[in-house]
């Protein structure tokens, strides 16, 4: 083996890596928040909405889940650009990721809602809870609590998948590395560093989600799935 590894030349660019990490985390955070909102809303519609709305949500979920994120982001970002709508690239990327993760969240939350026992709803009715109260406290919250582990791993996957958006020009961690590669020609080393950074990020994001879980769902009831 004659190749001399030179990680120092790559690590010299740490401010760029750091900047990339920051962008990746911001993208993940925003699309997580909006994704959960959309997902919860669509899941409610899909389980209890009027027929036409169910059909629309069903179409949205199936279409997004059966096409790649790359094509979705090309479609959205190049598409809006061709209409003359020039979104800032980070906004476009957040929209693309949100639309994508919203569909997955819908399916996961729907499973949670469907696992709520009928007796719970009847009890809420007997106690005279209003419709909004029932939705919030009897349906959405316990449903989210149940599927929280599945949601968390889906959002870690989202963080990893955000690297795909480098192909539309977002300078998140992976996109940043393109610049470093063309400056150093140390492609392999850059990918090794990227791999390690993403592994750390995955661990950090996973830890953040389990802490958030502890804060959001203090009851820690035994629900069949462990938190």
């Amino acid at each position: 083996m004659t190749y001399e590894f030179d990680f120092a030349a790559v690590l010299e660019f740490w401010p760029l890596f750091l900047q990339g990490i920051w962008t990746t985390l911001r993208l993940t955070l925003f699309s997580t928040v909006f994704g959960i909102l959309i997902g919860a809303l669509c899941a409610l519609v899909r389980t209890g909405g009027p027929g036409w709305a169910r059909a629309i949500v069903g179409l949205y979920v199936e279409f997004i889940r059966n096409t790649p994120l790359l094509i979705q982001s090309y479609f959205l970002i190049f598409g809006t650009a061709s209409m003359g709508l020039r979104l800032p690239i980070l906004v476009g990327a957040t929209i693309a990721l949100t639309v994508n993760i919203g569909a997955y969240t819908t399916e996961i939350v729907r499973a949670g809602i469907e696992s709520i026992h009928r007796g719970q709803l009847e009890a809420a009715e007997c106690l005279g809870l209003s419709k909004v109260q029932t939705y919030l406290h009897i349906i959405i919250r316990p449903a989210l609590e149940r599927v929280y582990p599945a949601l968390a791993s889906q959002y870690v996957l989202l963080m990893l998948a955000s690297s795909i958006l480098s192909s539309v020009g977002v300078e998140e961690l992976f996109g940043m590395s393109n610049r470093i590669q063309s400056d150093t020609f140390r492609n392999f080393e850059v990918f090794v560093v990227l791999g390690v950074l993403y592994l750390i990020l995955a661990v950090v994001v996973r830890a953040a989600f389990s802490l958030l879980g502890l804060a959001l769902f203090p009851r820690r009831r035994k629900l069949g799935t462990s938190l």
């Binding site: 190749y3 990893l160 990918f191 993403y198 592994l199």
Partner: peptide, 23 residues
């Protein structure tokens, strides 16, 4: 753990440039 904690794109890069480097 390693493969699930890394984007596929990074894996592609490692597999594309790696073999050449290791001879």
């Amino acid at each position: 753990e390693i493969l699930q904690g890394m984007p596929l794109l990074v894996m592609m890069g490692l597999c594309f440039y790696g073999p050449g480097i290791f001879g």
